[in-house]
Structure formats: structure tokens, C-alpha cells
Nucleic acid binder design. Structure first.
Lengths: 343, 343
DNA sequence: GCCGACCCTGACAACGTTGTCCAGCGCCGT
DNA sequence: ACGGCGCTGGACAACGTTGTCAGGGTCGGC
């Protein structure tokens, strides 16, 4: 900028005024300065600007896995709103690792983002307290945060799971398997709660061996699918080996608690002559094209992202009302998988 | 930091030393300073650090559409490598709009990223020349850039399309429709070239009305699918209305040139009793579970992203060799759609 | 016991920008 | 014609950090 001023033969502040479109510069002068800027290829250094002004016009987004279509849709929603506000979005992914989440969030804070949208991977967010105290706005997305008072935008996980499970029950399935993510993940726990509630509401017993939670890689999920459908031992090596060894009654339907699990389960079931009844949480792009079509409990991830971002910008606009928890409804999309008669 | 120094009763520089883990600070002093840092919740301001040191340890990624699974996979690859290098990744999406791409890239430059990976939306990247001149490393991804000498990492689009088309030809289809993206997009043009080459190599004529390029929304693609399969007029309102009105011979197979088109085409075909033969560019998560299974020309988007990021970090490591163009192979995954007999 | 050397610490300037303040000039009103 | 007001342009400090350099303290060696 100094060079530009020298080349144009004007003062430093005049160039600054032109760059910032401030009033108080004659059009002729402004044009001359702009010409020099283009000629020299000058670009304002936003870091220095931030240092001086204190505002960055950027917000951070910490995702769970940037490659997951669900996360992509979240980020699309967040980005759209950020863009409306003329804000740059900085995105990173935590790979479902608490340390990585922390590291990433703090790196974004060190860049002095104005606000942060976090899809929590870890169970503790106290590390954000000093940041929040010094003005950072935080909104949790998809799962609530812990250890800090902040807004959260969630889906109605329990309600959705209840509806999905009820759909299977209504189609005559008395024994329904639940396959979910790691049990400490909030969404999984809530969906499991919804499943239990639906079973209880229908007066159906739940055999704990019908519930499989753990990693969502295809191999693990495939094993869980086969075990639930054949009624084998639970393989968890629990404290009661005799119970673990005793075969459970095989289930006739499956509720898969997120898109990765659903996908892995479908792959595991691909070899079978007729697919058992299956309802999944999260819609899949091709769900309608499978035969039979796949019934799902659909979230609206883009709306989740948009809502979280709106909440964040409300906070940046000095909305100091107490933290809110927004819960977005889910939608049961019936595509006929429920109509498969029970075994 | 000043506050920390005051609270600890030490000099500013000593705090700086502790924060940067420089040697030359007695352990006792370091421990005291660290205690004060934790107590006050101090976090270094990386913007100021950047201003002083000139290096940001961050790279930018400009995607075409952050919500597209293909883009997600690209970014996963780039992020993995960035992380290996201890680098923060800043991501934005251009929504396939040249102005937005430019705006985003320049915003990232203003944040003084060390390097930039760009999936070009626009056809001109001269605007990056001044940035490159002042030390920015640039790598183009998925499509080459124009107006600037820079590395590019691409898939073998023409070769992949050739292989996919040849697969259909080998299964006895003499009339194959091509549905692609906007024709000015490099990947679409290359894939169309591959399609033409395969047809020519097999001695088959190509009716221009078999080729549909345009927006990839489901409605447009759906119309194209129906037109190609029934042999209706091309509807482009070209300069030769009589030719446009003359019905073309219906095609018996379709080559869809990217994941969005494939998806939209599958949706359009969902109502039909038997799906016409179809080969798509880009793999789909559920492609194997459709019946019949979907044959695709698969790219490896994560490898594309990783390769581009590696190239970028090579450049940041002062590799000054002339710009390279890396072309990654594609893989034909046969899943039986080609085995549908021609109509 | 004294001197030298080494290690640790702190003062200071500078990175590029913007906000504040002031000076100069032109125009308008009387 | 003169004075005042308003508008343009420039000098300067400050944002928070790090690199440079110099000074002080301590320990060891002679």
C-alpha cells in the first residue's frame, strides 16, 4: 500500500480510503489510485486489517467428516447463510476425534474467526470458555455441546427414530434390530431412546441383543446385520457369558441409525434373495431407486446448517438472550420397504 | 500477551518464547508463564503472527459445489495432506460461478494463504497472476486453469469416457446417447471427446441429436433422457428448424457424463419397466445395490485431492520446475448394466 | 578471589492497515 | 472582498506479535 501511495504520489491514508470505498476522495484521485492498484496488482492484507479493526468477517465450521454427504449438506447450508452476510467460511473436519476437534476449533480461534459452528466430536467443550468470554459466538450443530452454555441446533432424533420404529411395528414386526453408531454419540443415544420408546409404546419387549452399537465400517456393520438376523450370540464378551452365548430370537426388521450404517447394512444384505424390512435414519440419494424402495427418516441437513448459521449471526448481532436449543423435525419418507411382510 | 507478561511479572518476549516453545527459557519460568496463560485463557493471535512472520500455515481450497459428494471427496483428500503438513485448510465453494470463484479465491489471498487449490468454474484465471507473482502457489484440480501457468491435476476424462462408451458398444449398442454438463466445462468437453473417439473407433456414426449438454438439474436431464430414448426433436431451437424437427433414431443406451447427470437420469428412468443400458462417469455410493447394478467409470476423487495437495506443498517447498499436468487414470467398474441386451 | 563466558531476560522496532486529528484550500454568503 | 465553513489529503499512533540486540546474572575456571 505504501508502494501504491508512492507510485500514485498520494498519501498512504488516501489509498486506504480508496480501498475501503470511504467517502471523501475526489473521483479523479480515486480513479488514479485505482489504476495504480491494478497496475501493481495490489491486494489489501486482511490480516493487518483484522489486527487493526478487530473484526474478520469470517466464521469457522468444524465438521465431523468433511467427506460424509451429511456433513457436505450441513456445510452447504452454513455457507449459504455466511455468504449472505458477506462472511468467509473456514471449514475443517475433526474425523470424529475429540482432540482433533479441539485443535481445529482453537486453530480457527487463533485466526480470530468471529463465530464458530461446531459439530461436536468430543464430549467436553470447556476449552471454548475463554474464547467465548472474549467474544466468540458458538453454535453447536447436530449434537449438543457440553461444558459451555451455547446454542444448539439438532434434529428431532428421538422422535424420528420413534416414527421409523413405529412404522416397522405397524407393519407387523415384533422383533426389530437397532444398529447404530458409537453409543456415546448423542445422536445415536437419542435415536436408540426413540427406538426403545416406540417398542415400549407398542408393548413389545426389547432384547438387548437386538441392539448393536459400534464403529460404522462396513465389516462391523455387516457382522451385526448377520448376527441380528440369525440370532447368534452378541459377541460383546459381556460379564454374563452364558447369556451372551444363548442365542437371541432373530429379528425380522432392522432400524439403522444413520446413513453410513444404512449403506453398510444394505451392502451386507445385497446377497440375500429378499431384503428384510429396513428403515434408515438419513435419506440416501438413491434410496428411491432401490427395489424395494427404502423407507427412511429424513433430516434436512441443509436446513440444519442454515438454522445454525442464522443463530450464529444473530449472536454476532449482539443477541444476548439465553442459549436456545432448536430442534428441527424429521420426516418419515415411506418408500415401501415397510410393506415387505414379516418373516 | 502483554497482560500475561504483566501478570507473570516477566517481559513480553519471554512470554512469546514460551508460546513458541523456543529454547532459552528456564523450565521454572516457562511453567510460571504457562500457568498464567491457562489462567487468563490467553490464545496467540495468529493474524498478528502472520503479519510479523509472513507465513500463515494455511492453504485455500476453492470447490465447485461443497455439497456435491465428488467435491467432498476431493476436499477430504486435500485436507488429509494439508493436515500432514500441519496446515489449516480454508474451503469455499464457487457454485459453478466464475465471479464467485474469483471473489472467493481473492478473499483467500487477502487472508494470505500460502497456497491455493482451485477447481475452476470460470475460464480465465489471469486474476491470479499478481498473487502468483508475489509468491502464491496455485494448483488446479479436476479442470485445468487458463491464463496462468500452473500445475493441474486431472482425471483421464477422455480415456474414461472412451472406455465407458466402448463398453456399451461391445454390448451391441450402435446408437448411444451422451448427456453431459454445460459444454464449456472442460471435463464435459473431454468426456464428449472420448465418447466421439470410441464411436469413431468402432466405425459408428454419431447423430448430433444424440448429444445433450446443459444444466444438470433433474428436470432438464429428465427431458433429455426422454428425448434421446424416443428420438424426438432436439429442442435446442437451432438455426436449422427442419433438421431439428426431424426425428432422430432413438438411442438404445446412455452415457451420462457425471454423477449428477447419472443420478438424474436414473430418477427419470425409474418408472420404466426395464432400465435401458446406462454407463455413468463417477461412481455412486449405491451403484452396486441397484438392480441391475450400475456400470460406471470411476474416478478416485480423494486421490485427485491428495495429488493436488502434494503438488502444492512441493511448490511451497520451493520446487520451481516447470508446471506439470498430472492425469490420474480412471477405472471401468462393470456391474452388469451393460449386459442388458440392446432393444 | 577475580574474570570471562554463557545463558537467560527484556527493551525496541517493524510487519500493513486503519482511526484520529489537523492543515490547507476552495467556495459561498454577506 | 473577506471571513467562515466544509471538504480533501496527510502525518501519526496503535493493533499483537516476533526478530534483533544488548544487558545482567550466575557459575566455573584459573
Amino acid at each position: 500500500m505504501k508502494d501504491v501511495a508512492a507510485a500514485a504520489g498520494v498519501g498512504l491514508k488516501t489509498v486506504s480510503r480508496v480501498v475501503n470505498k470511504e467517502s471523501g476522495v475526489s473521483p479523479a484521485m480515486a480513479a488514479r489510485v485505482r489504476a495504480v492498484i491494478d497496475e501493481l496488482g495490489f491486494r489489501r492484507n486482511d490480516s493487518a486489517r483484522l489486527l487493526r479493526t478487530g473484526s474478520t468477517a469470517s466464521v469457522g465450521l468444524v465438521l465431523e467428516d468433511i467427506g460424509d454427504p451429511f456433513s457436505s449438506a450441513l456445510s452447504r447450508g452454513v455457507e449459504a447463510v455466511a455468504r449472505e452476510h458477506g462472511c468467509l467460511l473456514l471449514t475443517g473436519s475433526s474425523a470424529e476425534d475429540a482432540d482433533r476437534e479441539r485443535e481445529l476449533a482453537l486453530a480457527l480461534c487463533a485466526r480470530r474467526v468471529d463465530g464458530l459452528v461446531v459439530v461436536p466430536a468430543g464430549g467436553d467443550h470447556e476449552y471454548l470458555l475463554p474464547e467465548a468470554a472474549s467474544g466468540l459466538a458458538v453454535v453447536f450443530l447436530d449434537r449438543p455441546g457440553a461444558g459451555i452454555e451455547a446454542d444448539a441446533v439438532l434434529s428431532d432424533n428421538a422422535g424420528g427414530a420413534r416414527a421409523g420404529t413405529a412404522h416397522l411395528i405397524a407393519h407387523g414386526h415384533p422383533r426389530i434390530g437397532f444398529i447404530g453408531d458409537l453409543p456415546h454419540i448423542h445422536t445415536c443415544a437419542e435415536r436408540l431412546r426413540g427406538y426403545r420408546e416406540a417398542m415400549r409404546a407398542a408393548g413389545l419387549p426389547v432384547d438387548e441383543r437386538w441392539i448393536a452399537t459400534g464403529p460404522t465400517d462396513p465389516a462391523t456393520v455387516g457382522r451385526a446385520v448377520r448376527r441380528l438376523l440369525t440370532g447368534g450370540p452378541d459377541g460383546n464378551g459381556g460379564p454374563d457369558p452364558t447369556a451372551a452365548e444363548r442365542a437371541a430370537e432373530p429379528v425380522t426388521a432392522l432400524f439403522t441409525a444413520n446413513n453410513r450404517v444404512t449403506l453398510a447394512a444394505l451392502q451386507a444384505l445385497a446377497g440375500l434373495p429378499a431384503r428384510p424390512a429396513l428403515v434408515g435414519f438419513d435419506d440416501l440419494e438413491l434410496a428411491a431407486l432401490l427395489s424395494p424402495g427404502l423407507t427412511v427418516v429424513a433430516q434436512d441437513p441443509e436446513a440444519l446448517g442454515r438454522t445454525a448459521a442464522r443463530l450464529l449471526f444473530d449472536r454476532l448481532g449482539h443477541d444476548t438472550s439465553p442459549p436456545r436449543r432448536v430442534e428441527l423435525p424429521t420426516r418419515l419418507i415411506v418408500r415401501g420397504s415397510g410393506e415387505v411382510p414379516p418373516a
